[in-house]
Design a protein around this nucleic acid. Structure first.
Lengths: 226, 226
DNA sequence: TATTGTAGGATTGTTGACAATCATACAGTT
DNA sequence: AACTGTATGATTGTCAACAATCCTACAATA
């Protein structure tokens, strides 16, 4: 048995999974803006899929907070609220601090390499002015930290939040038509993440999140007042 | 308009919701032990419901980690692992500390009354040797704290965990056939929660969780080795 | 005019039949 | 004997038709 490097099979080629993925993409990309009514019959014919798997996909996104649904009445893309953003950022702060407390003594060469290489990707995307990619790479950078924690429950929770966060980033970028992540915003983040002062890192996470929050805060106020 | 005290209508009398509730109950009560195969056709005829809503209910519980499912092959009640319990308790510690940081300056008479009254219910259930009730009331005590935080994202996350926690409690109680929560385990908890030393409370949450973890730890080792 | 009652249409919820996929057992091959 | 291929049965995935519910608009009533 001398075979290796086989990527784990993605054993989920159910329609449900495909539909969920595609819907999520559409919401996150801003193609389906918050508040958009989602009518099952329309969507199903649009996707070339019957309503069964579509409903299951929708329910999956409801659990992720990207879609809201009231029995017998309707389904729509989740709206954005100031409270929602505040909660997301405050919660993220706690999660990421927890992640780093877990990671701290497990950081090895693999982690260091992955992190710096990911920072490079992010920096490159920003310099290329590829905003979509920049958003993605920023989220990947944080995902990396969660993954190295080895804490599945934590990872799942992060994944659940990631979609909404991505949406906020996209909306902010579209509204202000300016670059997403700042060029140097993550330099000190990575620097501290590779350093030897845990408390400094935890403090920085606080700052990092508050910075991020302020960036999208105004956006929401605009949207909320229609 | 002089009418009040109307309980908010529970507008979810869909079959999906009923089935999900009933399935969750059965799992949590231990009627469907971990590893039990769940066959859709059997369950649907057993519940007198077609497979559509049943599948949606199952998917809901999959998202809560109570059920595991592999496409085209099968579905079964989630198994218990040492890692799973460790993660649940370490994660809970962070969540509950976060909750109390949020609550701390919002604690009012209503909160104090609710908390002490809930402690009374718990104590009574223990004294009456009603173990099922004791488990429920203990979870309610913690839920109260999460609810008073006003943080919906935190509440949702807690609710997702609560099911699995409930299951652990039930299994532990059935395996060792001893009382669930100890009589005085929550006295200092409530005492500190009503006091004026936040750090003491946060430290106590750590202890409280580790105590709880050790209690169910052995159970898992037994189960894991079949 | 403000409130209540009542069709009508649209949308979600539910169902039972059909198709795709998988695990098992067993026969065939080397 | 170990491995490979193949049929079989069971189970999940998918579909299209039917039923239940809700929102809207409009008429009726006071």
């Amino acid at each position: 048995m001398a075979l290796l490097n086989l990527k784990p099979i993605h054993k989920d080629r159910t329609l449900r999974a495909n539909v969920a993925e595609q819907l999520k993409e559409a919401i996150i990309n801003g193609d389906l803006p918050p508040g958009t009514k989602l009518v099952e019959s329309q969507l199903s014919s649009l996707l070339g899929v019957s309503r069964g798997p579509l409903r299951e996909a929708i329910r999956q996104l409801v659990d992720q907070g990207l879609i809201e649904s009231v029995p017998y009445t309707g389904t729509h893309v989740a709206n954005i609220t100031v409270k929602g953003i505040q909660e997301l950022y405050s919660f993220r702060t706690e999660l990421e601090q927890f992640a780093f407390k877990l990671i701290w003594d497990r950081r090895d060469a693999g982690f260091r390499n992955a992190l710096t290489s990911q920072l490079d990707k992010l920096t490159k995307a920003i310099k290329d002015n590829d905003r979509e990619a920049a958003i993605f790479e920023e989220l990947e950078l944080h995902s990396l930290c969660y993954n190295y924690s080895g804490h599945e429950l934590l990872q799942d929770t992060w994944q659940r939040l990631r979609g909404k966060l991505h949406l906020y980033f996209t909306l902010h970028q579209k509204a202000h038509n300016r670059a997403g992540p700042l060029v140097n915003a993550h330099d000190t983040y990575v620097e501290l993440a590779l350093g030897n002062d845990l408390n400094a890192m935890l403090d920085h996470i606080n700052d990092h999140m508050q910075q991020g929050y302020r960036k999208v805060e105004k956006l929401v106020a605009d949207i909320e007042s229609h």
